[in-house]
Design a protein around this nucleic acid. Structure first.
Lengths: 330, 330
DNA sequence: GTTGACGAGGTAAACGTTTTCCGCATAGCC
DNA sequence: GGCTATGCGGAAAACGTTTACCTCGTCAAC
C-alpha cells in the first residue's frame, strides 16, 4: 500500500540512457531515421530495465489524441447490445485502445450528461448504440467523431451508421408469420421515438396489409424496449382475446411476453408462437421457443470499429448495411 | 465535419472575464476565500457563456488524478457480472467519474495486458470482477487502488474484497438439494484455479459428506465458467447414468446443462432438477426452472463503489461480506 | 579549402490544468 | 504617519509528452 514506487517517466529513461528526452520519444514513436542504431539500442535497454511505459495522459495532452473511445449504450439490460459492446471492446483493446462505457438508458438528459462528460475527456471517438436525438448530440456531432449503431438519428445524416435493413427484415419476418399461422396476430412494437422501431413496425404492418390481413387497432400496442414493458403489454393484449402469434419489437419485449404467457398458463410455442428481433446470443441456450431475426452482432462490431478507424483518420466512411437471417425455431 | 469549432480552454475564459487563469481555476475548484464575489460572478458568467468545461486531461496531468476508474471483468458472457458492472458504472457516473472497461476472459496474459494498459492511463482505481493471480496483478497492487469483487486472490490479502460467504451459501444450497431429492446427485463445479469455485465446491461436498451421502467420483466434474463448458460436462455426466439433480458452479454452467437436458429429451425440473449459483437477473424471465443462490448484485456494486471511494481517499476499507438468499423455484 | 548536404541528437515550446509563491492594496492599530 | 495583518489576484512552475527548430560533425563535391 502507501509508499508507492515513484512512476518512471520519459525523463528517467533519458537519464538512464544518457540521452535527451527527445531521443527517447523518437524511439518510442519509431520516428524514422532520426536516431542511430546504437543509441536506439541503449534507449531500448533502459526502457525495458526501468519497465517504462509512456504516460497516455501526457501523450493525450500534447497530441490532442487519446486512444480512448467511448460507447454510449441505451439499455444496459439488453443482452444483444451488451454482446455488441463487448465485441467492440475486444477489437479496440487489440488495437491498443481503451473503451469508456456509459449508459444512457434511453433518457435524453442522461445521454447529454454522458456526451458532456465525454467532451471534457477528449476521447477519440464515440460509438452510439441506439442514440436519441438531443441538443447534446447535435453539439457533439461537430466536435468528435461519432458513429451510430443499430439506430440512426435522421437529423444527422452525416454521421455514419452500421445496421441492417430493418424494414425488409421486418417484412420478411411478417411473411414467415403469415405462412406459419392462420390465427390472430398481435404486435408489440417499440417506442415511436426510435427510428428503428418505427421502421420495423411499418415493415410488419405494411406486409400484413399487402397480404390482406390488416391487424385491427387493438392488436397493436406500443412498448418500451424492455422486458417489463413487454410483460405489461402482453398482458394488455392477451386479456382482450386469444392470439396465435405475438410479434415483438425486439427480443427483450419477447422475453417479457413469454413470462406473461407462462403465468397465464399458455405454452409457447404450442398454444401461441412468439416472434422477436435481434437474436440475443443467449437465445440458443435459454429461449429455444423464440423465432427472431438474427442480427450479426459480431459483424456489427467489426464494421463499427472499422468505420471509426476511418473516421479518426479523417475519412468519411459510408453507412454499412449488413445482412440478417431469419431464425425460425419450432 | 472537419472545421471543428476550437475547444475553449481556461485561457479563453480568463481572457473573456479579464482575469488570470489562476482565478478561473479557483472558481472552478471552489477554492475557499480566494476570490471576491464580484470577480467570481464575472468568471461564472464567462464560463456559461463560452460553455467551458475543464479539460480532464489537463487536470489529470497536473494532479496525477483522473476521476476515471477501470473495471476488469473475467467473462463477458456472464450476465451476472454484466449486471454488477452496469450498476458500478451508474454509480460512478453519478459521482462524475467515468469507467473504462476491460475483458480479461479469465486469461492471465490478457488480464496482464489490461493492467499494463491501465497503468499507463493513470486511472484512479481498478475494480476486479473475478481476477486471476498474475505477476501483473501483483505489480498493479503496489501502484493503484485495487478492489476485488466476487473472487479474492489469496496472495493479496491486503486488497479489499466484496462478496458473499460462498462456503456457507454452497452448504445451504446443498442442504436444500438433500431435502428435496433422494435420487442421484451430480456436481459440475467451476475451475479449481478460482478461489471462489474451490470454496463453493468444498461447501457442497462437505455438506453431502456430513449427511452421509458422499458423491461418487464420477458424479463430480470440473467445468469452466461458461455455458459451453456446462453443456459439455452435463453431457459427460448424463451419459453415465440417470441423475435426479445437477448442481452447477454458477448459472452459466447451469444454462449449458439445461440445453443438454433438453436435447436429451429430459424435462426440467420434473425429470431432473438443476441448481445454479449467482441468480442472474434474467432468470426470473427466462429460467423459471432454475434453483440458485441469489447474490445481491446491487449491493455488490454499492459496496464496491463505497470501498473504492474510501481507497482513493487513502483509507483502508475492510472486506464486505454480503448476505445471500436461496431461490428455490418449483 | 570552401560549400552544401546530411545524419544525429539536443533545446525549448506547447498542450490545459493546479498550486505555490509573491505583490499590491486597503484597513486597523499604535 | 508608519507598522503589520488581511484579502484579492497575478506570475510561473510543474505534470509527461511531442515536435519544430537548431547545432554540430562528417563527408562528398567542386
Amino acid at each position: 500500500m502507501s509508499n508507492a514506487p515513484k512512476k518512471v517517466s520519459i525523463k528517467d529513461v533519458a537519464r538512464a540512457a544518457g540521452v535527451s528526452i527527445a531521443s527517447v520519444s523518437r524511439v518510442i514513436n519509431a520516428t524514422p531515421g532520426r536516431v542511430s542504431a546504437e543509441t536506439r539500442e541503449r534507449i531500448e535497454k533502459a526502457i525495458t530495465e526501468l519497465d517504462y511505459r509512456p504516460n497516455r495522459i501526457g501523450q493525450a495532452l500534447r497530441g490532442q489524441m487519446n486512444d480512448t473511445f467511448a460507447l454510449v449504450i441505451s439499455s444496459i439490460q439488453n443482452n444483444f447490445y451488451s454482446a455488441v459492446a463487448w465485441e467492440i471492446e475486444r477489437r479496440l483493446n487489440d488495437a491498443g485502445s481503451a473503451m469508456l462505457i456509459y449508459n444512457s438508458n434511453e433518457d435524453p438528459a442522461l445521454q447529454d450528461r454522458c456526451l458532456g462528460d465525454l467532451a471534457s475527456r477528449q476521447v477519440s471517438g464515440v460509438f452510439l448504440l441506439c442514440a436519441v436525438d438531443t441538443p447534446g448530440l447535435q453539439a457533439a456531432a461537430g466536435q468528435t467523431p461519432l458513429l451510430f449503431i443499430n439506430r440512426r438519428v435522421p437529423s444527422l445524416p452525416g454521421v455514419p451508421f452500421v445496421g441492417i435493413d430493418d424494414k425488409s427484415a421486418a417484412a420478411e419476418l411478417a411473411g414467415a408469420v403469415l405462412r406459419e399461422t392462420g390465427g390472430r396476430i398481435g404486435l408489440i412494437h417499440g417506442p415511436s421515438r426510435s427510428h428503428t422501431s418505427r421502421v420495423r413496425r411499418d415493415g410488419f404492418l405494411e406486409t400484413f396489409d399487402a397480404a390482406g390481413r390488416r391487424l385491427e387497432g387493438d392488436s397493436v400496442v406500443e412498448a418500451e424496449l424492455s422486458m417489463e414493458s413487454g410483460y405489461a403489454c402482453a398482458g394488455q393484449l392477451l386479456e382482450s382475446g386469444r392470439y396465435a402469434a405475438l410479434i415483438c419489437g425486439n427480443d427483450q419485449i419477447a422475453y417479457g411476453a413469454f413470462r406473461r404467457c407462462r403465468e397465464l398458463g399458455l405454452t409457447v410455442p404450442s398454444d401461441l408462437a412468439i416472434y422477436g428481433f435481434d437474436d440475443n446470443p443467449l437465445n440458443q441456450w435459454l429461449a429455444p421457443w423464440l423465432n427472431t431475426v438474427s442480427v450479426p452482432h459480431l459483424r456489427f462490431a467489426e464494421a463499427a470499429v472499422a468505420g471509426m478507424m476511418k473516421l479518426v483518420e479523417g475519412q468519411r466512411p459510408g453507412d454499412t448495411i449488413l445482412p440478417y437471417d431469419l431464425v425460425l425455431r419450432r
